[in-house]
């Protein structure tokens, strides 16, 4: 996995590069938005980390330029600005995620992982969480031993919805919407029953954590 880092502060740039290299990525660091184009022209990247406060062309304008040129490269914005306006701007312009400085390296690594996973899932129709391999096209899930899990239609819908938002809490309402059609009505209790069955079928490959009053989260086992 190759990451392009666009950050002008050498202290930050150096640390992020080392941190991500330590996590097994290949990292190319550039200090300004202008050199991004030439980099993208001759190298394939899986993700770009873009600082908003760049000298010359700033990060927002780079995001806009990349999206206008049709690039689907996953973009993670890092910035020292915490205003909601900036965040909305960046996301509206086509950035995929947003991280406010100062952040911890593991958090940055986790965001990178999630973004790359989402992009790969879209390309390969497959999501991998812990020992669980979810084949979106074949509508089946394989456990760590490679055995297909026998899931009902509703259990599959719940797993698919949770997998799409893995690492995030998914509300019960959202799960309800995921498993019911327009005409069907289903109670919160029914969701709990389906989730508990799904949980036992997942075994040790991944877990579904219940969050009191909110919903569920699919986690690495």
């Amino acid at each position: 996995m190759r990451i392009l880092l666009v950050e002008d502060d050498s202290l930050v740039s150096d640390a992020i590069s080392r941190g991500l290299i330590g996590s097994g990525y290949v990292v190319d660091a550039v200090g300004d938005a202008e050199s991004v184009t030439s980099r993208l022209a001759d190298t394939h990247y899986d993700l770009a980390i873009v600082d908003l406060g760049l000298p010359g062309e700033d990060g927002l304008s780079l995001v806009r330029r990349l999206r206008r040129s049709g690039s689907s490269l996953p973009l993670l914005i890092v910035t020292a600005r915490d205003g909601l306006d900036d965040r909305i701007n960046a996301l509206d312009l086509g950035a995929d995620d947003y991280l406010v400085k100062p952040f911890a390296l593991p958090e940055l690594a986790a965001r990178c992982r999630a973004l790359i996973r989402r992009a790969t899932a879209a390309a390969a129709n497959e999501i991998v969480i812990g020992g669980l391999r979810i084949d979106l096209a074949g509508r089946r899930a394989l456990n760590e031993k490679g055995e297909a899990l026998e899931l009902t239609r509703r259990e599959w819908s719940i797993l698919e919805c949770l997998a799409h938002h893995s690492g995030r809490v998914v509300s019960k309402e959202r799960l309800t919407q995921a498993i019911t059609g327009w005409s069907e009505d289903i109670s919160g209790n029914a969701i709990e029953v389906h989730v508990s069955r799904l949980r036992s079928k997942l075994g040790s490959s991944a877990t579904v954590r219940g969050i009191r009053g909110l919903g569920y989260r699919l986690e690495d086992a």
């Binding site: 502060d9 400085k101 952040f103």
Partner: peptide, 25 residues
């Protein structure tokens, strides 16, 4: 404030990340 935030947060991010890398190394 926006400028101050930027000027404070960027070096702090660098320091934090450098120390994390250093811990690993």
């Amino acid at each position: 404030l926006a400028n101050a935030a930027h000027q404070l947060r960027t070096p702090l991010t660098g320091l934090k990340a450098q120390l994390e890398v250093l811990t690993r190394e």
